[in-house]
């Protein structure tokens, strides 16, 4: 009697196993499906709008007609500015964390700052940038205000990725350098940084991706001007902001789809580059470590 009962249990648990594995696989398929639908839908609707004139002409009637050229300029300039500020700070922080200090109160404080900053919502960055850069420092709605706000937002990403990249450099390389009489800074610049570079670039690319896609932090700091800027103190409108205004205020769905397609394509490109760099990097380190 007992024997049959046991076999029932085993059969039941086997069937349950098959069901659960099916459910888990289904969820993964669902997640990938959502991605395919999102990217596919945007490109399907948006690609027909993408013509050279759409990319290279200024908008007319608040974006109802014409192209998106000034918003492309705005996006590029703001992103470049954000990276120029955040990359040195982020890499320096990562060097300090990975190469100089490993524990203690200073490190705990820096980590707390970085982790907390990573969790701050972009609208808070927007409000802060508005209060601090736009009003308090009197920079107005400008490239400068927007880029500095974005820099703060992408800083934690760059720190984390750069630190991981440096920690992935084998300890033995450092020991060889030290054992030949290399100082700490020589070891960092000649052995650690060259080998961590692809990983660091990956972090920077992720930061670029976030900057390109950001809206809330930018709209209150860089403004929404549709003119091509001439100085760092001019306001700009990024593609994301333009797209948000077009779609939310129902100005032009056609141009909204076009802008969305450009956005999605740039994010795809940025992610692809980041992913490629990371993989080449890991493969190289693995090959070296044998």
């Amino acid at each position: 009697m007992k024997g049959t009962w046991r076999r029932d249990v085993i059969l039941l648990s086997r069937r349950r196993d098959r069901i659960m594995v099916g459910v888990l696989t289904g969820s993964a398929v669902l997640a990938v499906g959502v991605l395919v639908i999102i990217v596919g839908y945007v490109l399907w609707q948006g690609l027909p709008v993408l013509t050279p004139t759409f990319l290279l002409e200024a908008p007319e009637k608040m974006g109802r007609a014409g192209g998106i050229f000034p918003t492309i300029v705005g996006t590029v300039v703001l992103t470049a500015g954000a990276v120029l500020v955040a990359a040195p700070l982020g890499v320096a922080t990562a060097i300090y964390l990975a190469e100089y200090a490993h524990q203690g109160r200073t490190v705990a404080l820096i980590r707390f700052g970085t982790e907390s900053l990573a969790g701050i919502p972009s609208i808070i960055f927007g409000v802060f940038g508005f209060l601090f850069f736009v009003i308090y420092l009197d920079m107005g709605w400008s490239i400068l205000s927007g880029a500095l706000t974005l820099a703060g937002m992408i800083l934690p990403t760059i720190i984390r990725t750069a630190e991981e990249a440096m920690l992935a450099v084998p300890r033995e390389y450092r020991e060889v350098s030290y054992s030949l009489g290399g100082s700490r800074w020589q070891t960092i610049t000649r052995v650690v940084l060259p080998n961590a570079l692809p990983g660091i670039l990956t972090g920077i690319m992720l930061g670029v991706g976030r900057s390109v896609g950001e809206t809330a932090a930018v709209i209150f700091t860089a403004g929404a001007s549709l003119r091509v800027p001439h100085s760092l103190f001019d306001p700009v409108r990024t593609m994301s902001v333009h797209f948000y205004l077009l779609a939310r205020e129902g100005i032009s769905m056609r141009n909204a789809y076009g802008t969305a397609a450009v956005l999605v394509l740039s994010v795809l490109a940025v992610n692809f580059v980041a992913y490629y760099l990371m993989h080449r990097h890991l493969a190289r380190l693995r090959g070296a470590g044998r």
Binding site: A31, V32, V34, L35, I38, V39, V42, L206, G209, R210, V212, G213, E214, T215, A216, S240, F243, Y244, A247, A260, L263, V264, V267, L268, V270, N271, Y275
Partner: peptide, 12 residues
């Protein structure tokens, strides 16, 4: 693919 999902702008 999931990382890409994280990279898509929130406005989209």
């Amino acid at each position: 693919a999931l990382e890409l999902l994280a990279g898509i702008p929130s406005v989209v």
